[in-house]
Every structure is written in structure tokens, then in C-alpha cells.
Simulated scan of single mutants.
Amino acid sequence: MIFELSLLAERPTRIVGGTNAKTGLHPWQVSVHWGDPDRGLEQRHVCGGSLLTAGWVLTAGHCKTLAPQHPRPLGRFLVLAGKYKLGTTEDTEQSSRVTRTFIYPGYSGTVAPYDIALMKLEKPFELNPFVATVSLPYPETIPRGDAMLTGWGSIGRGKNFDGPMILQEAVLPILDYDICKRALDKALRHEGRNPLHPTNICTGPLDGTKSACKGDSGGPLVTENAFGQAEVIGVVSWGLFPCGGRNAPSVYTRVSAYVTWIHKIMLNH
């Protein structure tokens, strides 16, 4: 199989190997849209994200770089919370424009480390059972065990996209860093580089039955902490395309490496 390095953002359908999520079970999940109907530019889902506070969203740095690639880059970011099914207006949904996007310094805009960003909302959301926040991990903690991935990423194992627009979920095993690195070193031996960094984490399974995919970018990888709270440990960053191949881990930005930066940005802006 020929592998292609891919930032996991494009047309949304669903997670490879995922199942339909239950309504309201992941209330921190948001959909980041790009466009501007006033200029005839349809707003569409480009990334996922996590609601950290009523007015701040955590997402991937490369989500910001998607906007200029549009043939008419005159749009704006809009965040939709309380979403379950894309492409339809739901009673539970709220929307807010993004006023500023803060990308972690040093991120190159490609398949690379430091792929994390914060979006400040024009109008904070009203929190309720369908729109709620997720907790941050303790700084520099290394997550282990299983984690929950949610998003509207592609189900396709090829380059075709198929499936409903309903939010998907999948429980995935967190891989040991060295195991992930070895798998990617082998898969990318013809690429000449492996962008994996110690500030990344990876999920399997390495049999390829479940995987993040295009459209999941920026979305949350979540575990339950010692207090019974949902805790965002990863932000979907990149992977090997087509999705769902054997020995092809999904790669996330490890949130615990950026907690100090996150607090600093939210406090000062």
C-alpha cells in the first residue's frame, strides 16, 4: 500500500470503524465551519474542536491554514455547538463567530509538531446538557489505556467519501510512543521523514479496524479523569492516508504539553 501523509481535515463523513454517538453524550464537541453566506460562500464543516470554556474552543493549528486554500478565501470561522447531525438546523445547536485564532508558536502549518490552536468566540455559548465544557489534563501527564474519539471524519478506507453526517464515536487504545514511532518509521520509510514528536500521542488499533480520518481534525480524544470528568488528552492532527490501514496509527497533539500555554492565552485575551 502506498501511504500519503495527511492532515486529517477535508470533506466530513465519519470516523473509520466508528458508530453513531448518542445524542448529547459528547457536549464539548463542536464543529468548526468556514465560509460567508453574505459573499455567496457556503459555510461548511472543516474541523472539529472542544469547548474549554463558554467562550474558548481548542482545535488543531492546521485548521486555520485550511481557509486560504479555498478559491475564494473571504470567509470566516463559525463554531457550532450542540451539533449531532451536520447539514441540518437542530433545536440543540448554538453558533458563534470566531474573533481571533491563536496558533501555538513554532507550528509550521504542515504535518508537523505543535499542531494546536485556540479560537476565541465572539459570543460565549450558553451551557446546558447539550453544550458543555471539557476538562484539561494536568501538565505533562502521559495518558494510557483507552480513549474516546468523536467527530465527523470520513468512514472511507479509500479516497472516496461516504456515510451519514451524524456524529461518530470510537473507543481506541492509546499506543506506547515507541511502538507508534516504530510503526510510522516503517510506514514512512520511503517518505524520508517521520514527523512524530514527543508532544504527540497515538492511537491504534494497529489492525486498522478503527481510525481517525479526514474531517476529524482538531477534534477531541477524551478520557475520564480521577474525578469522573471528561478530560481532553489529544487533538486530532495527522495520519496515513487512505485511513484505516494496518500498522498506521492516528496521531494527535498531546494536550498536556500545552496546558500552560492554553491558560496563558485564555487569561490574557
Rank of each mutant, 00 (worst) to 15 (best):
M148Q: 13
F161K: 12
K186V: 03
G219L: 05
S95L: 09
I166R: 14
G145M: 10
L86W: 06
P129W: 01
E169C: 05
V111C: 04
T101Q: 12
P195V: 05
L127W: 05
E169D: 09
L136S: 01
T223S: 05
E90Q: 13
M119Q: 15
D146G: 06
Y84P: 04
P198V: 08
A147P: 11
I174Y: 11
Y114K: 10
M119A: 05
A132C: 01
I116S: 01
A132Y: 03
F130G: 00
A187H: 02
P205Y: 13
G158D: 15
P105T: 02
D162R: 13
H197K: 04
P139D: 00
D162V: 13
D185M: 08
Y107S: 01
I174D: 09
D178G: 00
V79G: 14
L172K: 12
N225A: 03
A81Y: 06
I166K: 13
P198S: 05
P173M: 09
E140H: 03
G208S: 15
I174P: 04
P220S: 02
I201Y: 03
P164K: 14
T89H: 13
Y84F: 15
A147W: 10
L175M: 11
S154K: 11
A187M: 12
R100I: 00
E90F: 08
Y104K: 07
L206D: 12
P139N: 00
W152S: 08
A112R: 01
V171D: 13
T223G: 02
R100T: 13
E224A: 06
S211Y: 11
N128S: 13
S135H: 11
K120M: 12
L127F: 04
E90N: 12
G153T: 07
P143S: 04
E93K: 08
F102M: 07
V134G: 02
E140Y: 02
N128P: 01
P129K: 07
K214M: 07
D176K: 13
T92S: 15
I174E: 05
P129R: 09
K120Q: 15
I116H: 02
P143L: 00
D115F: 02
L136G: 01
T101C: 08
T110R: 09
M148I: 13
V222I: 14
A170W: 06
P129L: 04
P198N: 08
G153W: 10
Y177A: 11
K186R: 13
A132V: 00
G215F: 06
T141I: 05
R182M: 07
C213G: 14
K83H: 10
L136D: 01
L80N: 10
G82L: 05
A187T: 04
G219W: 06
P105I: 01
P164T: 15
G208A: 14
A132H: 05
N128L: 01
L136H: 01
W152H: 08
K186H: 05
L78S: 10
P195L: 04
S135E: 12
H190M: 07
N200R: 03
E140K: 00
N160Y: 04
D176V: 09
R193M: 07
K159P: 03
G106P: 06
L175Y: 08
P105K: 02
C202T: 07
I201F: 00
E93A: 14
Q94V: 09
